[in-house]
Design a binder for these strands. Structure first.
Lengths: 204, 204
DNA sequence: CTCCTTGAGGTACGTTGCGTACCGTACCAG
DNA sequence: CTGGTACGGTACGCAACGTACCTCAAGGAG
């Protein structure tokens, strides 16, 4: 007699928690509907009443898990800021989390609605805003020309990181790659100095 | 009497062709073992004798498809070459094709051996060589400084394209995006002139 | 020419996992 | 008290992967 039959929000939360646990424990492919139902102490019916398909529950569970990531950090230099954001993203996406996201993306590829939801989670507002803020600070410091504040430029490093993820299956991008992205692509582009040397600026 | 019972290499090729057709027609998720067997005029036995699991066949089929591409084109200008290669890649990867790679990646994520195979295909030889050749021609024309011939620079546009694919679930990157990649990122980076508003809608 | 090994063909099956249907039953409202 | 809503339980249909088993054609060895 721990309590009667759960309903509404209470049950929904229990399902979501169970799904999140399964998700983090066994990844998306291990997040079976039956297992979620069993762990939540209910049955698939109650789940399907709320999420019409597995992918929807997966995305909801992922969102439930997703921390309140608070990016944005002012390290004092453009290079430091960029590396910080990249490293943060890399860390967040690493480990099973990245795989979950990849599987989720694959699963939701057919459903525009799900994709929208996911994209919002992944690349969405906050992250982009952080990169714009970074560029803004750089301009204020005189490290970048005002023309550098463009969507494509702001999105560039994360795009490259995504590209790396697409290449390597396992999301374990080594730190040197992040440094290369910043030093060989991002900074030269912004500074407009061209590609003097592949290595980090010696004295600049 | 088109011939007796096929064996060895002949049968293998038939399976591979059937798999490739299914793959390009319905994507990886649609590449069912039964359908492949039926299309190849054989049965699953013959397939499993060669590829122990679906993912292996998928990768082999992908490789079979990918080998047919013949990139490289000399349009006379750096911009033209880059756009040409990007458009070619975009066209090749379009339709279910782009999703194939993601699905394949997800399917092969557990198997290091498959992953290796896949990575080799994706980032691999021919495509990268084409971009290096492109850079080489640009240097010869005086359109780019010799320092521009770097792996990360050569890989940049394809990386960005991959990033676009990762963002949009559906691999239908509009042409303007390709143009933006070239005009706002690739060319400014190579020319080292900075970001002097490549296509200014107004005077900033 | 005759065996005999190899590997292809055919079919059926076991298993997993998604999604659905049906039915009884507990909660809540009036 | 009475009804409607929604939860619980179970069973099912279906697709698809992977496997087992048997038959039979091909092609070489003797």
């Amino acid at each position: 007699m721990t309590g009667g039959r759960r309903r509404g929000a209470e049950l929904e939360l229990a399902i979501l928690r169970a799904a999140a646990e399964e998700l983090t424990a066994s990844g998306y492919s291990g997040m079976t509907m039956d297992k979620v139902a069993r762990r939540a102490g209910t049955n698939k019916n109650a789940i399907y009443r709320r999420w019409p398909q597995r992918a929807a529950l997966g995305i909801a569970a992922y969102k439930y898990v997703a921390d309140a990531r608070t990016p944005s950090a002012d390290t004092g230099t453009l290079r430091g800021d960029a590396l910080e954001l990249l490293r943060q993203a890399n860390a967040t996406w690493s480990s099973p989390r990245g795989a979950i996201l990849r599987d989720l993306l694959a699963a939701a590829a057919d459903e525009p609605a799900l994709l929208e939801l996911l994209r919002e989670q992944v690349g969405g507002g906050a992250l982009n805003a952080a990169w714009f803020a970074l560029l803004g600070r750089a301009v204020a410091r005189g490290e970048a020309p005002p023309e550098a504040v463009q969507p494509r430029v702001a999105a560039l490093p994360m795009m490259l990181l995504r590209g790396e993820y697409a290449l390597r299956g396992v999301p374990a991008v080594p730190d040197e790659v992040l440094v290369e992205i910043v030093d060989e692509i991002f900074l030269p582009l912004i500074r407009g100095r061209g590609l003097a040397s592949p290595r980090p600026p010696s004295a600049d």
